[in-house]
Nucleic acid binder design. Structure first.
Length: 878
RNA sequence: GCCGGGGUGGCGGAAUGGCAGACGCGGCGGAUUCAAAAUCCGCUGGGCUUUAACGCCCGUGCGGGUUCAAGUCCCGCCCCCGGCACCA
C-alpha cells in the first residue's frame, strides 16, 4: 500500500475491473429489480462541469446502495441529442449539427466514464440515432391512430429569433424560454398532441405520486393542469349560440356585455353576422390585437363592439357583444360574460366603454370583513353620476371603485334572489341544463401540446400529404432525416427545400405527394426514452412488452425541478397513452422522484459589457466592491447556476485529474442536502480532499501494522463499538432518505473516532470491514481499493464491495451509561451520567445529592417529567 | 395576486417537541519543520462577573400563544427563493 493516496491510479484500476466483471450490466428480465435513472443530458459541449456532476453523483450513490441491498439494478445513460443548440452552434462554428452533436457525445461519454459511474453502457443510445427516432416516429403514429395527434390551424406561439413555433410549456412570462425573445402569435397549421384529453387523469393520478414526489412538483403540475369547475352559459345571437364559461354563475344577472377573444373559433362564426358598418372596425381590431405582444395586451382592457346583441338566458335582455383581447381564445370557450360589478377585469372594461354596472351579489351581513370589503369596492367620493341601491332596508348612493369579487347573497336575480352564491351556482347550473342553455362544465388551463417545429435537427414527422388521400401515415420507418448543408432556420422547415426528402409517393395511391416538412419537438424524444432503456437494441418494435414491464416503472428518477411542467408531464402523458394502447402495465412512469438542487457559482456582470462576463482574474475589489481591472467598470456580483455562457463553470476534467472522481463526488454530496441549491467554492473541495486523504492515512497506518478486516469486534472495546454502531444506524437512515451530506458527516465522525481510539487490532479490523462498506456508495473507487487491500474480498467471499451488503448495527449493544439533560422548572441546569435503566426515583435521588443541581431545588417537588435516556424536568413549588 | 419552499454562528449547514449549533470551511493559539506545505493537538455563538468556573444572562426573521419543555406545534406579521399569472 502506497503512503500517498493516488486517486487517479486507483480510479483507473477499479473502473477497468468493474468493466471486466460486468458489474453494471443489467439483466434482461430481472426478478428483484430496481430501476434508477437520472434525466439524460443534452450534449451541449465537450466538457462537463461541477453543475452536471450533482445529478450523476446522486444517481450513482443510489444505484450503488441498491446494488449493496441486493437488487438487480438498471442504471442506464444516453443522450437527448436533438435540438436547437446544435443548429445554433453549427451556425456559430460552421459545422454540421450532426457532427457537432456526436462530437459532444464523445466528449461527455469519455468524461462520464472517468467518473466511474455505474452505468450499463451497453444500453446507451442517442435520440438522434435513426435506430431510436424510428421509434419516436412510431410513437407519433400510435398517437395518430388513437386520434391523439392531429393537425389544426391555430394561433400559436412563434419565436421570431428561433424561427419556430413553441409549445405553451416553452413560453415563460411571454418569452421564449431559450432565447428570451418575446413570443408572437401566428396562425399556422401545426401538429398537436391531445394532452387535454388526459388532463383529468394526469391530475387525479398525482394522488398516486403524493409522498413519493416532491410536493412542489405535484403542486406545479396541479396548477399547470388548472382544473376549474364552473358553468357553461349560452347567450344566443339569433340562432348562433355564444357559449361562455364562468366559475361565478351566481353573477349571471349582473351581465352587461359579452366578450369574445379575437383568436377564438366563435369569433369566426360571429363575424358572419357582423353588419358592414361594423365589419371593418372589428376586423381591424382583431388584426391589431393579434400582433400585440403579451405586455401590450396586458396594458389595458380594449375591445370593439360588433353591433350584435345576445339574449340573456334568464332576463331575455339584449346584451352587447364585443371582441376583446383580454379574453383568452384557448381557455374555456373563448368567450366570457361581462359582469363589471363582480369581476375586476370586466369592471375595467366597462369603465372604458361606459357600460352599465349591475350589482347582484352582496355580503351576507352588513358588518364584518365581507361588508368592509364591499364598502371598499363600491363607494368612492365623486361628483359624477351615481348608482343607487337598496341593501338591508337602507338606500345607498355610490360610485363603484372596483369589482366586489367575494361571494355572498344574491340580489335582483329573479328566482335565485336570496340564495347564497354556492347554492345559486348549483341551481343556476341545473336550470340552464333544463333549458338547454348550458349547465355545469369544467375548464382546464392546460393546452394541447404543440409538437411540430420548423427546424432541421429533429425527428421528421412521419406523415405524407397526398393531394388525393390527404394525410397518410408513413409506416415505412424510419423517415430518415436527410443530410443537407442547408439547415439554417428560416421561418419554415429547412426540410421543405430538400427535394429528395420532401417529394415522395403516396403510400396509399402512389400519386406524387409531399412529406410533412416539420420535425418533432425534442420533448417528444425524451417523453419515452426511459422505456427504450429497457430494450434499447430492439429493431422489431418500440420495445418488448415483457422487458419493459419487467423493469418499469422507474423506481427512482432524479433530475432538475425545472422539468416539472414540461418533461415530467409529457412523460406521464405518453406513459398513459401506451398503457391505453395495452403495451404497458403501468400508467405512471416514475414511482419516486427526487429533484436535486443546482450548483451555483459566483460571477460578475456589468451593465456596460452586456453579454461578456469577466474572468475572476480580470476583477479587482475596491472597498469591497468589484470592478473590471482593465477599465474600472463597476461590476455586479451574481450567484447563478453554472453555465458556459456566464463563464462561471468549474470544469470537471482538471479537477478529476488532480484530485480524483471520488473527491469531486464527495465534495458535491457533502456541501449541502442534495435537494438544495448551493454555491461551489474552494472550501467545498477542501473538505472532501482532506477527508479522503485522512481515510487513506488512517488506513495506511492500519495496513503498516498488519491489521486486516475482521468479522467481529473485540467487545472489550465496548464504548468504541457502540459509537460506530450508532454511526452505522445513522448512515443507513441517511442513505434511505438521500441525506448524503449528513451521511458523509457521520463517516467523518467515524474516521475521527478511530484515529486516536485505544482499541485492539481485532476491533480495528472490524472497523475497516464496516467503514469501507459504508463509504462505498459515496466514494466507490477508494472503498473498492481498501476492500481489496484489507482482504475483505477473502473475508466476505465477494469479488467486489458492491456485492456485499451495507453493514448493519450489531444487535444487543446498548450503552450502559447515558448522559441526560436536567431541567429544573423548565430551565436547563446541567447534565447527568446515569445507568441506562435508571428509574425516576433514582434519578431524583441523584439530582438531590448533586451539589451543583440541588441548589436549584427550592421548595417542594411538585412534578417530575422523566424521559428515559433523554431528559428529566423537575418542577418545584417556587 | 395565487401556489409551493425557506429564514439557525464569520460561512456551508446539523438537530423523531427533550442538552441548539453535529460535520465541515474559515479564524486564533500550540506541536512538528532549517523553513514552508502537509499533518496533529487545543480553543472558536454573543454578553456579564476578581467567588475566572461544575458560575450567570441572552440567543434559531419579528410579535403573540400552546406545553413541564418550542428552531421544531398554533395564530398574526416581515423578508428571501422558486412556480403560475387577464385562466373568467
Amino acid at each position: 500500500m502506497d503512503k500517498e493516496y493516488k486517486a487517479g491510479e486507483i480510479e483507473r484500476r477499479w473502473q477497468k475491473f468493474w468493466e471486466e466483471i460486468k458489474l453494471f450490466k443489467a439483466p434482461e428480465k430481472p426478478k428483484n429489480k430496481y430501476y434508477v435513472l437520472e434525466m439524460f443530458p443534452y450534449p451541449s459541449g465537450r466538457d462537463l462541469h461541477m453543475g452536471h456532476l450533482k445529478n450523476y453523483a446522486i444517481g450513482d450513490a443510489v444505484a450503488r446502495i441498491k446494488m449493496m441491498e441486493g437488487y438487480e439494478v438498471l442504471h442506464p445513460m444516453g443522450w437527448d441529442s436533438f435540438g436547437l443548440p446544435a443548429e445554433n452552434a453549427a451556425i456559430q462554428w460552421g459545422i454540421h449539427p450532426r457532427e457537432w452533436t456526436y462530437n459532444n457525445i464523445e466528449g461527455f461519454r469519455e468524461q462520464l466514464k472517468k467518473l466511474g459511474l455505474s452505468y450499463d453502457w451497453d444500453r446507451e443510445f442517442a435520440t438522434s440515432d435513426p435506430e431510436y427516432y424510428k421509434w419516436t416516429q412510431k410513437l407519433f403514429l400510435i398517437l395518430y391512430k388513437r386520434g391523439l395527434a392531429y393537425r389544426k390551424g391555430a394561433w400559436v406561439n412563434w419565436c421570431p429569433n428561433c424561427k419556430t413555433v413553441l409549445a405553451n410549456e416553452q413560453v415563460v412570462e411571454g418569452k421564449c424560454e431559450r432565447c428570451k425573445t418575446p413570443v408572437e402569435k401566428k396562425k399556422l397549421t401545426q401538429w398537436f398532441f391531445k394532452i387535454t384529453e388526459y388532463a383529468d387523469r394526469l391530475l387525479k393520478d398525482l394522488e398516486k405520486l403524493r409522498g413519493h414526489w416532491p410536493e412542489h412538483v405535484i403542486k406545479q403540475q396541479e396548477n399547470w393542469i388548472g382544473k376549474s369547475e364552473g358553468t357553461e352559459i349560452v347567450f344566443k345571437v339569433g340562432d348562433l349560440p355564444i357559449r361562455v364559461f364562468t366559475t361565478r354563475a351566481d353573477t349571471v344577472f349582473g351581465v352587461t356585455f359579452i366578450s369574445v377573444a379575437p383568436d377564438s373559433e366563435i369569433t369566426d362564426e360571429i363575424l358572419k353576422f357582423v353588419s358592414d358598418d361594423h365589419r371593418e372596425n372589428v376586423l381591424r381590431y382583431i388584426n391589431e390585437s393579434l400582433v400585440k405582444s403579451p405586455e401590450e395586451r396586458q396594458k389595458g382592457k380594449t375591445g370593439v363592439f360588433t353591433g350584435l346583441y345576445a339574449e340573456h338566458p334568464f332576463t331575455k335582455e339584449k346584451i352587447p357583444v364585443f371582441v376583446a383581447d383580454y379574453v383568452l381564445g384557448e381557455y374555456g370557450t373563448g368567450a366570457v360574460m361581462g359582469v363589471p360589478a363582480h369581476d375586476q377585469r370586466d369592471f375595467e372594461f366597462a369603465q372604458t366603454y361606459k357600460l352599465p354596472i349591475k350589482v347582484v351579489v352582496f355580503p351576507e351581513k352588513n358588518e364584518g370583513e365581507g361588508f368592509e370589503e364591499f364598502l371598499k369596492c363600491m363607494f368612492e367620493e365623486t361628483d359624477s353620476e351615481r348608482f343607487s341601491l337598496e341593501y338591508k332596508g337602507k338606500r345607498y348612493i355610490f360610485q363603484p371603485k372596483r369589482a366586489y369579487e367575494l361571494k355572498g347573497i344574491l340580489k335582483d336575480s329573479g328566482e335565485f334572489t336570496g340564495l347564497k352564491s354556492d347554492e345559486a351556482i348549483k341551481r343556476i347550473g341545473q336550470k340552464l341544463k333544463e333549458m338547454g342553455l348550458g349547465g355545469p362544465a369544467v375548464a382546464y388551463r392546460i393546452r394541447d401540446w404543440l409538437v411540430s417545429r420548423q427546424r432541421y435537427w429533429g425527428a421528421p414527422i412521419p406523415i405524407i400529404h397526398c393531394p388525393r388521400c390527404g394525410e397518410v401515415p408513413d409506416e415505412n420507418l424510419p423517415v430518415l432525416l436527410p443530410h443537407t448543408e442547408n439547415f439554417l432556420p428560416k421561418g419554415r422547415s429547412p426540410l421543405e427545400d430538400v427535394p429528395e426528402f420532401i417529394n415522395t409517393k403516396c403510400p396509399r395511391c402512389g400519386a406524387d405527394a409531399k412529406r410533412d416538412p416539420d420535425t418533432m419537438d425534442t420533448f417528444v424524444d425524451s417523453s419515452w426514452y426511459f422505456l427504450r432503456f429497457t430494450d434499447p437494441k430492439n429493431d422489431k418494435e418500440i420495445f418488448d412488452k415483457e422487458r419493459a414491464n419487467a423493469w418499469m416503472p422507474v423506481d427512482q428518477y432524479i433530475g432538475g425541478a425545472e422539468h416539472a411542467t414540461k418533461h415530467l408531464i409529457y412523460a406521464r402523458f405518453i406513459t398513459k397513452v401506451l398503457y391505453d394502447e395495452g403495451i404497458l402495465k403501468y400508467d405512471e412512469p416514475f414511482t419516486n422522484l427526487f429533484t436535486q438542487g443546482l450548483v451555483l457559482k459566483k460571477f460578475w456582470w456589468s451593465p456596460v459589457h452586456l453579454k461578456s462576463f469577466p474572468n475572476p482574474e480580470d476583477v479587482e475589489y475596491r472597498d469591497g466592491k468589484p470592478y473590471l481591472k482593465a477599465d474600472g467598470t463597476p461590476l455586479e456580483e451574481r450567484l447563478e447556476m453554472m453555465s458556459k455562457s456566464r463563464g462561471n463553470v468549474v470544469p470537471l476534467g482538471p479537477f478529476v485529474d488532480e484530485y480524483g472522481a471520488d473527491a469531486a463526488r464527495v465534495a458535491i454530496l457533502f456541501a449541502a442536502p442534495p435537494d438544495m441549491d448551493f454555491e461551489w467554492t474552494d472550501a467545498t473541495a477542501t473538505a472532501a480532499i482532506r477527508f479522503l486523504n485522512k481515510i487513506w492515512r488512517v488506513f495506511y497506518g492500519f495496513y503498516q501494522s498488519g491489521v486486516r478486516a475482521e468479522n467481529e469486534p473485540d467487545l472489550n472495546d465496548r464504548d468504541f463499538v457502540i459509537t460506530i454502531n450508532e454511526i452505522v444506524a445513522g448512515i443507513r437512515k441517511d442513505y434511505e432518505k438521500f441525506k448524503f451530506n449528513t451521511a458523509i458527516a457521520k463517516l467523518m465522525e467515524a474516521i475521527n473516532a478511530v484515529e486516536n481510539a485505544k482499541i485492539t487490532e481485532k476491533t480495528k479490523g472490524w472497523f475497516i470491514n464496516v467503514f469501507v462498506r459504508l463509504l462505498a456508495p459515496v466514494s466507490p473507487h477508494l472503498a473498492e481499493e481498501l476492500f481489496h487491500k484489507f482482504d475483505m474480498d477473502k473475508l466476505l467471499g465477494k469479488e467486489t464491495v458492491f456485492k456485499t451488503p451495507l453493514p448493519e448495527p450489531l444487535p444487543g449493544l446498548i450503552r450502559e451509561e447515558v448522559e441526560i439533560g436536567v431541567q429544573i422548572n423548565g430551565k436547563f441546569r446541567g447534565t447527568l451520567k446515569i445507568p441506562i435503566n435508571s428509574d425516576e426515583e433514582y434519578v431524583l435521588e441523584i439530582v438531590k445529592n448533586n451539589e451543583r443541581l440541588s441548589r436549584y431545588l427550592t421548595g417542594e417537588i411538585k412534578k417530575v417529567i422523566y424521559v428515559p435516556g433523554k431528559i428529566v424536568n423537575i418542577i418545584t413549588g417556587l
